[in-house]
Design a protein around this nucleic acid. Sequence first.
DNA 1: CCAATTTATTTACGCGCGTAAATATTTTAA
DNA 2: TTAAAATATTTACGCGCGTAAATAAATTGG
Lengths: 343, 343
Amino acid sequence: MTKQKIRNMDEFSTVCGVSRPTLSKFFNDPDSVKRSTRDKIEQAIAKYDYSPNIYAVNQNRRKTRNIGIVVPNLADPFFSEIGREVELACHDAGYSPIVLSSHGRPTLEVSNLNLLRSLKPAGVLLAPFGRVSDISVVDKFAKDVPVVLFDANIDGVGEAFVGTDNTQSMDLMVEYLCRSGQPPCLFEMKSPLNPNAFKRRHAYLESMERHGFPAHIFQAEGTGWGFEEIGSAEGGRMLSEKVFPTDTVLCSNDRLAIGMLSAAYSLGLRIGHGSGCDLRIAGHDDHPYSRYTCPSLTTIAQDYSEIATRAAQTLFTMIESSEAASERRETLLDGKLIMRNSA
Amino acid sequence: MTKQKIRNMDEFSTVCGVSRPTLSKFFNDPDSVKRSTRDKIEQAIAKYDYSPNIYAVNQNRRKTRNIGIVVPNLADPFFSEIGREVELACHDAGYSPIVLSSHGRPTLEVSNLNLLRSLKPAGVLLAPFGRVSDISVVDKFAKDVPVVLFDANIDGVGEAFVGTDNTQSMDLMVEYLCRSGQPPCLFEMKSPLNPNAFKRRHAYLESMERHGFPAHIFQAEGTGWGFEEIGSAEGGRMLSEKVFPTDTVLCSNDRLAIGMLSAAYSLGLRIGHGSGCDLRIAGHDDHPYSRYTCPSLTTIAQDYSEIATRAAQTLFTMIESSEAASERRETLLDGKLIMRNSA
DNA sequence: CCAATTTATTTACGCGCGTAAATATTTTAA
DNA sequence: TTAAAATATTTACGCGCGTAAATAAATTGG
């Protein structure tokens, strides 16, 4: 066993027969050294299982290769999925992703940004709370660190935004619902946390007007992230009080719809698009559980993967060009209609 | 604006009137300096917004205050919930938690452990895949770094384990089902990834024998983490083929049950414990969505919070005593019966 | 083969902080 | 008031690595 324990790059340089500065170059960019020395180094790495001390590396490097990823709530499968996609994109590009959840609390969003500041990341991918974010903090952060927003936009903050085009997606859903039955009412939170909710409300109103139907909006009381509970309690109340003037309810997001479907089931209502059904319910987001609701949920699929990779790519080019972008870019992706059994 | 930008602890020591070594002491433990100097420092921190460079700190400290938290899959709400509890417990104890998801892939579990190794954590809280973990890697890791396992146990690995007592919980559920109707069949994965599944199978068999009923086990084909899909496809097939000899099915976990419930709904079966129902379905875990299934799912609640805090506490005492524990400790917590409408 | 070019080595300094030892100052107790 | 104890300062070194400049060696092209 000649495999002594390597303590630092100096020791490693002796056992591998390459000078320390060359090793340093190698670890920054393996292609920056000659093929033969690269091979020599890589063999030694495999043999001695050495890797540089990341704290020493990051202390001395101007910028780290860390990328912060901040999402409002990992307990929401939507964010855990999209967070995962972003994480993989960063990893594949040779960065070190760090996923942070704000657990539904805007104060934690601030804490996470402060934590990231101390991590000196090359850039940050942020899905902000939006309306309830501490916008001045986020804006200040985005002036110090390259930031790309995704999912939820905050006007003027960060150097780019990537998300779904709520106007397009809601119009698509309204069009489908109008063609296939009675025009939809909208069921949403009275005080939404998320800017997408406002965009969807406006999109619904516009779309209904365009189609020549009266708009009907019903708003659930309640705050926080317990959308299923709110959808169940408030949606159930509205269903039992028969407040909806048409037999079709479009929920502002799938989690509200999941709650409402469970309430409808309890009330013995037959939900679905077939004949003999009492009510149609549709959602928005293609939540991972939306295909297992009873009945399965007709909804709008956001392209998680596309949002994630585009946001990540945008950030990478920002980092690598190291130039402030000339102007803020907003990328809006189309949603797709997923026709299942609930509407 | 006298607020010049502080670059390091030296500069900070001049503007705050306290010597650098004293500052260093303060940042390691604010209580280790006199009250008056502490106040002076804290005022200066607030004024100049200084915090030590964490890379320089961690380079020089023998051990960091990082705690790694590794879960098999954050997309599973069970792990995102319990991961959050563990994270908070670490944070409250003054450590820096780092949550890593293996995204359902055992190879990523190995990657995450390697990543953690370079982060030189004070300790690691690991919910391992179990059977499909690379056990030799995990074991070797646990010999270098203090590790507490939670949720899933691997015999002899790490210095402690905290999880739910599957024997107790399954017996509780079997007892309830037998008292309230026909004895349950067990629906589970044929090749489970998780050691808890095996424990639950054994617990079911023992419990049925103790109650004097014949055991009936039905195993779903399929691998991976798409439990809902497997529960829906395989469970649906079994339901339509009427393979279950009793009218009660106990699913090995809630996600299988969610899938099976959705299949049962599609088949027009009336699920529930009331008269006029065709079938009872029960689960295990109290998955966050189990109260919104149709009908709501009768299940076993694991005490997420208790598991998390106990695991964290165990790790903290290990770290702070810095002594290898005399022997490995296994803590098993009782599950609670949650009677809802499905069984 | 030799000069031009590319690549590696040597040497040296700095990053921001932990930490130790000797010394100085303040606080506490008697 | 004074000695003992507690706390702070001064000085100095080291951690592991990035990086720059001068020099040496290896490679390339003609």
